[in-house]
C-alpha cells in the first residue's frame, strides 16, 4: 500500500538547510537597515523582488513584526564573507512605497522597476520608475494576487476581422 501524497504532506524527511540571515524592516527603516548592512560588508545587492501576501494571511513572521500585504525582499550578498542576508520589508496596502536603494546599489535599478511594474510598489527616489516588462500604457500590476489570470479573452469563431 503506497501512501497518498496528500496525506504525507508537511513532514520534512530531513531538516531544511541552514537559512540565510533574515532581517525584517518597515518602509521607514528600509533604507537605513540596508545602508547599515552595506557598511557591514554586503557589497552586492543580488536580488530584489516583491511578494503579495493578499491570499496567504496566515504566514509565519517573528514576534513583533506587523504583517502587511506586500513584502519587498532584498537579497544582499557579501563577496568577501561569502554570506547572504535577506531584508524583508513589510509594505502596507494603503501606501505601497519604500525608499529606493538606487543610491546604495545602482544595480537595483532594473529590479525595482520590475517590482513596481509587477506589484505597483513605488520606490521613492528611484531615478526612472517606469514599467520595464509590461507596455507603458498597461493598467494594473500583473503579479498582484487580485489581478486575474488570463484576462484576454480568446475568441476562436466569429472573431471580427482585422479590418
Amino acid at each position: 500500500m503506497t501512501v497518498e501524497p496528500a496525506e504525507h504532506a508537511g513532514a520534512p524527511a530531513s531538516p531544511a538547510p541552514a537559512q540565510d540571515a533574515i532581517v525584517f524592516a518597515t518602509p521607514e527603516r528600509h533604507h537605513e537597515v540596508v545602508a547599515q548592512l552595506m557598511r557591514d560588508g554586503f557589497e552586492m545587492c543580488s536580488d530584489l523582488c516583491a511578494v503579495d501576501y493578499l491570499s496567504h494571511p496566515g504566514r509565519r513572521v517573528p514576534e513583533g513584526v506587523t504583517k502587511e500585504r506586500f513584502e519587498v525582499v532584498v537579497n544582499l550578498l557579501s563577496l568577501s564573507k561569502k554570506r547572504r542576508v535577506e531584508v524583508r520589508t513589510q509594505v502596507p496596502e494603503a501606501n505601497p512605497s519604500v525608499p529606493s536603494l538606487f543610491d546604495l546599489y545602482p544595480g537595483t535599478e532594473a529590479m525595482e522597476r520590475e517590482a513596481y511594474d509587477m506589484h505597483g510598489i513605488v520606490f521613492v527616489g528611484h531615478p526612472d520608475l517606469t514599467r520595464i516588462l509590461m507596455p507603458e500604457d498597461w493598467e494594473g500590476h500583473p503579479l498582484r494576487k487580485d489581478y486575474g489570470v488570463g484576462r484576454v479573452p480568446v475568441q476562436f469563431k466569429d472573431a471580427p476581422g482585422p479590418r
Partner: peptide
C-alpha cells in the same frame, strides 16, 4: 500490477505534492 501505484501516480501528476510553508532563496 498495483491499483494503489496507479492512484499514487495519478495523484502526483494531477494534484501534485504539497510543499511545507516557507520561503527560500537558492542561487
Amino acid at each position: 500490477e498495483s491499483m494503489e501505484a496507479l492512484i499514487h501516480h495519478f495523484k502526483i501528476f494531477t494534484e501534485g505534492f504539497r510543499v511545507p510553508e516557507g520561503e527560500v532563496y537558492v542561487a
